[in-house]
Structure formats: C-alpha cells, structure tokens
C-alpha cells in the first residue's frame, strides 16, 4: 500500500501549478525515501526534477516501490478542488490502476475523494551528472519572475551574464532592447531579499524566455530561487519546497548557429 498525507494541500497545489505548463504527463516514483518525478517537456528542451522526501510528509507509507504514470492536467484539476488548508492524502494499492486523492477540511466536516486513472508510460530516465557550476546565484524568486516577465516583452531569449559584481539579464528584439542589473547584496536585512553570487568564473548564457516563464510558476513555493550556471551546460533553476524537498528545472542554453 502507498499512502502519503500532507496537513495542508497548499504545497501540492503549488507544485502542480509549477509543473503543469511544462508537463502533460509524468511518472511519480514512490519509494520508502519519498516521491520523485523526472520528466521532460514535449520538446525535450527542459527537464523537471521534483523530490519530496518521505520525512516531510505528515504520514508516509510505501510498502513497495511504485511507478505511477499521472496525467498532469487531470491532477492539476483535482488539486484545484482542494482548499489550501485541507489535509490531502494520496492513496494507492499495490499494482494500482488508480490513485485516490482525499481532501479533508480543517473542521473535518467535508471529506472529498477523487479517483484518477493511472497511465502506462514509456519512461526515459536521464542520469544528471554532478556538476561544479561556475556561478551560483541566489536571489528573491519574485524578482527573478518579474525580470523574466519584463524582459520577455523585448525578445524570445534572455541572456544572463554573471560576474563577481552582479548578474545582468539582457533581452534584445525588433522593438529595442533591455537590460537589468542586480548587484550582490551588501547587507540584507532579510535573508529572502538577498542577492548572493558564488562565482568561480564569469558566465554568459542565453535561454528561451518561454521556458524561464514556465519555471517561475514555482515562485509561490519559495522566497528564493537558486540559479546554477556553467558554460555550455544546462541552467539549473531550483526552488526549495518548505522542509519537504525541492523542484529543479534544467534548461539547455541557446547556441549560435
């Protein structure tokens, strides 16, 4: 049997909102250690890696490893039926055809059950090598979302240049160009407002706006986002999910033809 319970469905609701633009379906690998999802978007340009540790759940039981193929659109619809304060329980039997989502209101007076059919999926699992990145930037996630949105008006791609002094975002298009520079924070009163740059060597990489704007849908999950970059390797855009895990987005850089 598999059963995982969260005291508040808000986290799971936010996780679904953070992946639904990129993924139509995904396999949820459930084991004793937790739930893992690794899936690419349809165009195979980006990869989403989600990790929810079992110890972060209020109740977690997984008698045997399960691979459950889920339709992300349906799952998003189901999670939207839960109130943020509802308790959510995911339940499946061994060799399941279905997964059950159970929402219970705080006063325990409303109990909703949604059963979703699982799908058989050919899955391609990718090994992600351990990488030491040239630049690792931590910055407020809302600021990153704002920059991606603002610069998307000017072009289809954003160039990110990172040096010791700061991080510069540039977009250029037919109507003009724009750039936004953020300096490393000297002294931040609040940790979540800080811009912190850990640089081994400067990098300059260009990424498609479309994907960055999908990644920032994870903004409600965490006040800070971590961007890890090295020359000619995928960007890693990471959001912590409370004390339970993280979501990482990998995006291949654009290259000159």
């Amino acid at each position: 049997m598999f059963e995982a319970r969260l005291a508040q469905s808000a986290i799971l609701k936010k996780v679904l909102e953070a992946v639904k633009d990129l993924l139509t379906e995904a396999t949820f690998e459930c084991s004793d250690s937790g739930i893992q999802v690794q899936a690419m978007d349809n165009a195979h340009v980006s990869l989403v890696s989600l990790n929810l540790r079992s110890d972060g759940f209020d109740k977690y039981r997984c008698d045997r490893n399960l691979s459950m193929g889920m339709n992300i659109g349906t799952m998003t619809k189901i999670l939207r039926c839960a109130s943020s304060e509802d308790t959510v329980t995911l339940r499946a039997w061994d060799n399941p055809d279905n997964i059950i989502f159970i929402f219970e209101s705080q006063n325990k007076e409303k109990l909703s059950e949604y059963e979703m059919k699982l799908i058989n999926m050919d899955q391609e699992h990718l090994g992600i090598p351990e990488t030491v990145y040239s630049c690792v930037v931590k910055m407020p996630s809302q600021e990153f979302a704002r920059i991606c949105k603002d610069l998307s008006q000017f072009g289809e791609a954003i160039t990110i240049a990172c040096s010791k002094e700061g991080i510069k975002f540039t977009a250029a298009g037919d109507y003009g160009n724009a750039n936004i520079k953020l300096a490393q924070t000297a002294e931040a009163d609040k940790e979540e407002e800080a811009v912190i740059i850990d640089m081994q060597e400067p990098v300059k990489l260009t990424f498609a706006c479309r994907y960055l704007n999908s990644f920032v849908k994870a903004t409600p999950l965490c006040a800070q986002v971590k961007l890890s970059m090295s020359g000619d390797v995928p960007l890693v855009c990471e959001y912590q999910i409370g004390d339970i895990g993280h979501i990482r987005y990998y995006l291949a850089p654009k290259i000159d033809d």
Binding site: M40, E124, L126, P129, V233, A252, K254, D256, D257
Partner: peptide, 13 residues
Amino acid sequence: MSQRSITSFFTRT
C-alpha cells in the same frame, strides 16, 4: 540561435 535537446547533456539510464 538554436536550441539543443536537454537529452544531449545527460546520459540515458
């Protein structure tokens, strides 16, 4: 500019 597939950066397991 062109876009490489993410699969070209990682190994299939």
